[in-house]
Design a protein around this nucleic acid. Structure first.
Length: 279
DNA sequence: AGCTACTCCTGGTAGC
DNA sequence: TGCTACCAGGAGTAGC
């Protein structure tokens, strides 16, 4: 599913064909893509603007717009489970799952989403949407010092805590499982019981996992995530635990286990990631 | 504060 | 073959 590395890949690969383009005409094919926004107001706000920057905050994709060289608001998109964004040449059929399209001065932008969870909204204040988010895990503000201090104040289990976007922003189910395995920490370990050595392992694991996944343009499986160029990522070949239930741990050979934590499938190695002591 | 359950969605697949 | 039931999950919300 699109998590930070996939979203970062989308932003990087979309930039060349989307930044600098003028949005001439909006087509809303699935109105709920816009959330509560009225589709005609959305079209009025967006048509005639130019995309001047495309950036990422956590799993959000933000396009800064200008009209006559003055700031004209922002598009804020979220791919959720199955969203895709791409710019095609005119006349290319985006398929049955296109939910929103922009005719550009060169090409056509498509937001494509099988499961219809994804959103693209228009706002003057993107901070209203992204303001509650925790630190970017690859940013300077996400120091080990801060991470360790934050862990000390929480009694939650590591798995749901790392999925909490207000704690650290951008991780999803896959990269949490992978990071915990790399750090040799059990997903049910209580955050405030992680000592400094272990919290540093986890901090490094999160950053290393995300960085390598970005290098490999994210993870693709099923028929879902693809880059804006239509290519699958390749990080799925690096998975140590995610989707490997019953298969041997690459590090110790024990069988990978799957449990459910907070309604999320959770994969770990029972030997490398020792269970927390029962309280 | 932090847990569970539920919602939104559809394609894929297991089971019969 | 064709049907049904269930699963995947990011994030928001409600209730305890």
């Amino acid at each position: 599913m699109p998590e930070l590395p996939e979203v970062e890949t989308v932003v990087r690969l979309l930039r060349p064909s989307f930044v600098g383009r003028r949005i001439q005409k909006v087509h809303v094919l699935w109105p709920r893509t816009l959330g509560d926004l009225d589709e005609f107001e959305f079209a009025r706000a967006v048509e005639g603007t130019r995309v001047v920057q495309l950036r990422r905050r956590a799993k959000y994709i933000i396009a800064d717009l200008e009209r006559r060289r003055r700031p004209a608001g922002h598009l804020v998109g979220h791919l959720r489970m199955t969203g895709r964004m791409q710019v095609d040449r005119r006349g290319v059929d985006p398929g049955p799952y296109a939910r929103l399209s922009f005719e550009l001065d060169r090409g056509v932008f498509h937001f494509i989403d099988v499961r219809k969870f994804g959103r693209v909204c228009f706002t003057q204040e993107p901070e209203q949407i992204t303001g509650e988010l925790g630190p970017e895990p690859l940013g300077d503000e996400f120091s080990h010092e801060r991470f360790h201090a934050d862990l000390r104040t929480r009694r939650r289990m590591l798995k749901p805590l790392l999925l909490d976007q207000t704690f650290v922003a951008g991780l999803g189910n896959i990269y949490v499982d992978e990071s915990l395995h790399l750090a040799k920490l059990h997903p049910l370990r209580q955050a405030d019981r992680v000592d400094r050595t272990a919290s540093e392992r986890l901090w490094r694991a999160i950053r290393a996992t995300l960085e390598e996944a970005i290098e490999r343009e994210g993870s693709s499986f099923d028929t879902f995530y693809r880059t804006p160029e239509g290519q699958p990522g390749s990080y799925q070949h690096q998975f140590q635990v995610y989707g490997r239930t019953g298969k041997p741990c690459h590090r110790c050979g024990a069988k990978i286990r799957r449990i459910v934590v907070g309604q999320r499938g959770t994969h770990f190695c029972p030997r490398c990631q020792r269970a927390p002591r029962a309280r």
